[in-house]
Amino acid sequence: MRAPRSACDAPRYIIDDMVEDVIERLAFLRIEPPAALVVGDWTGELAKSLRSLGASVSEAEPADGFDIERPYPHGGFDFVASLGVLDTANDLPGALIHIRNALSPRGMMVASFVGAGSLPVLRSAMLAADGERPAPRLHPQVDVRAGGQLLQRTGFADPVIDSRPLRASFRSLDALVADLRAMGLGNVLANPGPPLGKAALDRARAAFLSEGEHGRTVETFEILTLSGWRPG
């Protein structure tokens, strides 16, 4: 389970990007759902936007105990948004089925999370740090192809899968790691690799800085978005 995140303290560039994307999708499709569920948006901005359209909105936060891998306690939602949480599900097909079952017939789901193309510079820095014995520093992530297969497997109609890059620059490896921890995006493996020693950490820091210029290194987050409808 990811640690709780504070809307006052945690960087918001990833969740803000996801919220903005959902709002744009609904506007493009001219959807104003009467009843909606928002999972994972700890900023509250998406719920606020949906309420401005007249929706009755329920909110759930896994960091506060909401279990995305169990049947949802309520159903009949016209729209469910899941933001930034599905990438850590042990049973991702099961989690998607629970979302589908929480929807009313012809209800729509949009699920966004950090995908497999994320953090290439950090991955390279960790390999440089570990040398000939690389450790599991990042948990497995989903790519676009797997996302499409998941939607078909879990019974969503008219599935759409896409991804987009979100880039941010950092002055140091430590600054990136601090952001990841604050946003709850750190390694959630049950058996993560051993801590880096001082020499290995120095190698990682140097490798990270070598990928940048003018004192800043650009890192990429791939935002994967799955959308589909409950048949009805």
Rank of each mutant, 00 (worst) to 15 (best):
F66I: 09
D67N: 11
E69G: 11
E69I: 07
P71K: 04
P73Y: 07
P73N: 07
H74N: 13
H74Q: 13
G75K: 04
G76W: 04
F77V: 11
F77W: 12
F79T: 10
V80M: 10
A81C: 08
A81G: 11
G84L: 12
G84T: 09
V85D: 13
V85F: 07
L92Y: 02
L92F: 04
G94A: 11
G94P: 08
I97T: 15
I99L: 14
I99R: 11
R100I: 04
R100T: 06
A102K: 00
L103R: 05
G107R: 00
A111G: 02
F113I: 02
V114N: 05
V114T: 08
G117T: 00
L119N: 02
L119H: 03
L119I: 10
P120E: 05
M126L: 13
L127F: 11
A128L: 07
A128W: 01
G131N: 09
E132K: 14
E132A: 15
E132R: 14
R133S: 15
P134Y: 01
P134W: 01
H139P: 06
H139K: 08
P140R: 12
Q141D: 11
V142Q: 02
V142E: 07
V142N: 05
D143G: 15
D143V: 04
D143K: 05
V144H: 11
V144P: 08
G148E: 13
Q149G: 15
L150P: 13
L151T: 08
Q152H: 15
R153P: 06
R153I: 04
T154P: 12
T154Q: 14
G155P: 08
G155V: 03
F156G: 13
